[in-house]
């Protein structure tokens, strides 16, 4: 497992404890009392460490190589998943994956951005950066959900929509814009969850939803802190300061009333306990689906419109 820079002292302590255990076993000395004290101290240190992370450190957790991906969550929270491929215009963007599945016995259309865990996988999934064709595939699946009256769940973990020649030529901006507009018109409940990185329009293009949640250590922002630092500070190394200034953590966004709730992560981050984060995610989705199921489509659309209509802070 990848150990992050700020986690190193913790792992050193844990290693020492393991060493001590081995020594006591081989030498036959009883150090169980001391071990217990050390382990307790290590645990307390761990809790304190993760409760006081800076936004920049939490971004590292959100970007962790072992963080569960969309396809992991599919296995963890759904059954009977069948992937539906392609935009019907010549492409099957792998950075966005979608299909039909069941969650708690209820059929849903589930769509998300997919990242890889290895370089090889990341080349396939383009590091989770969709092309316009990915957004158009998602749109096609939104319409499918609308037609068959299936709720939509989107899971978002993207450093942003891909900036490339072909992406511009085939309308990256337009593809995202059309999704924003068309999501407003859908008659079925939409639940969006930021599971890792929620960068810019690339994330929003799947997130005009009735309920929006974030995993505890995920982040959601108008621009990556690196991008912001290089533009406003003219210095990409100021990303940590930009991360602080941009207010991108789940707590910040809850306070700004942009999201509806935070899904607690296991101590150390989602990658430390797939089962636990899967359950948290699943319970949140089931509860939200339950809240939304009895709202008629006109009211649902109206409430969705008003939800985003209210966003923004200005003087009057």
């Amino acid at each position: 497992m990848t150990i992050l820079e700020f986690e190193k002292p913790l792992y050193e302590i844990e290693e020492k404890i393991e060493e001590l255990k081995k020594i006591s076993e081989s030498s036959g000395m009883d150090v169980s009392n001391q071990l217990e004290t050390f382990e307790k101290q290590a645990m307390e240190y761990k809790k304190e460490l993760y409760a006081n992370l800076t936004p920049a450190q939490r971004i590292q957790i959100a970007r962790h190589a072992d963080r569960p991906t969309f396809l992991d969550y599919i296995k963890l929270i759904t059954t009977d998943f069948i992937e539906l491929h392609g935009d019907r215009e010549g492409s099957d963007d792998r950075a966005i994956i979608g299909g039909i599945a069941k969650i708690n016995g209820q059929s849903i259309v589930i769509i998300g951005t997919q990242k890889g865990k290895t370089t090889k996988e990341n080349l396939i999934y383009n590091f989770g950066m969709p092309q316009p064709q990915g957004y158009r595939k998602a749109l096609r699946l939104f319409y499918h959900a609308n037609k068959f009256n299936l709720p939509i769940v989107t899971l978002i973990d993207t450093p942003g929509a891909y900036p490339g020649i072909k992406a511009e030529e085939t309308g990256q901006g337009t593809a995202i814009a059309v999704n924003l507009k068309e999501m407003a018109k859908l008659n079925v409940p939409i639940i969006a969850i930021i599971t890792g990185e929620g960068c810019s329009g690339g994330a929003l293009g799947l997130a005009v939803a009735d309920r929006v949640f974030m995993l505890e250590h995920s982040y959601y922002t108008v621009i990556s802190p690196e991008g912001c630092a290089s533009i406003l500070w003219r210095d990409a190394t100021k990303a940590d300061i930009a991360a602080q200034a941009l207010k991108i953590t789940s707590e910040d966004l809850l306070e700004l009333e942009i999201i509806d709730g935070i899904i607690k992560e296991p101590l150390g981050g989602a990658h430390c306990d797939y089962e636990m984060i899967g359950n948290g995610l699943k319970n949140t989705i089931i509860k939200a689906l339950d809240e939304l199921k009895n709202i008629n489509s006109t009211q649902l659309r109206e409430e969705r419109y008003n939800k985003f209509r209210r966003m923004g802070v200005f003087c009057q």
Binding site: K181, S200, K247, F308
Partner: peptide, 24 residues
């Protein structure tokens, strides 16, 4: 989008696009 208003600026994309949906 205006970076100084971070996520609030991002949400203006959703807000204006939803308004276009109404025009449609």
């Amino acid at each position: 989008a205006r970076m100084q208003e971070s996520i609030l600026s991002l949400m203006q994309m959703a807000k204006t696009s939803c308004a276009v949906a109404k025009l449609n």
